[in-house]
Amino acid sequence: MQNMNLYSRGDKLFVRINIFLLTLFALSTLYPFIYIAAVSFSSGSAVTAGDVIYRPIDLTLAAYKYVWNESQFWVSYMNTFIYTVFGTIVSLLIIIPGAYALSRPQLIGRRFFNLFVAFTLWFNAGLIPFFLNMRDLGLLDSYFGIIIGFACNAFNVILLRNFFEGIPQSFEEAARMDGANDFQVLWKVYIPLSKPAIATVALFCIVSRWNGFFWAMILLRDEGKIPLQVFLRQTIVSLTSDEEFGSTLLEAAYSYETVTAAIIVASIIPVLFIYPFLQKYFNKGILLGGVKE
């Protein structure tokens, strides 16, 4: 924007009010995180007494120590890593070649296959048939079921296909004249040219894997296989099912509140770690996946 001195008095006021309101909004977005972090570092008694507002009271790592010694936490954390890493790899192995094939003009039935993919955006069978299908396939309570069953979705395929379609035809033609086959065109030309789009799709996969809980909750019975989010939910449920919402653990060092908060913080940290990438690519991804004629 232009030099502030050029603004009229009305404009200056407008700009200031605007900045004030936005800052307020941003702070209210940030506040819950600050609060949770503060709770996680506070003593259980301070939280129960209602002393924690925005900073830790009786600074302590008790809640984290509790979580650290909770074996289920580590098992779940490990599982989440497994689901995220392998899930994302499997997703990319299916989506990238498929999206490439769908973007080829020479593919016979291209319209049909694109419709075949897009149709699932508009109509899906719903929770029950999907669950029964997973059951029929013998994918209940298995790592493989979680990894393969959620490997793909139409949105990611279409996003990448659109990107591939936007790559000038001449790149492929030049490679073809140089003697490249489809595998080589995909591997040596399209994938290197599509790094931002592929990164976007990969990040979509990573985030949805990291955060996914619903189907893991439904499909997994074995505590040894549940991901972090399901573990977190169990912890929270045991908190909410307590009518008083109060602490049943009366040791002062930690309480359910501080323990839950500590698990929340621990599960957010990896997200914060990749957040700079997320911001960079999701911006693009939203636009890539946007309206297409």
Binding site: N211, F213, Q229, V230, V271
Partner: peptide, 10 residues
Amino acid sequence: FISLVIIAGI
């Protein structure tokens, strides 16, 4: 980018 479980927890 935060999971719904965490949102619910918060």
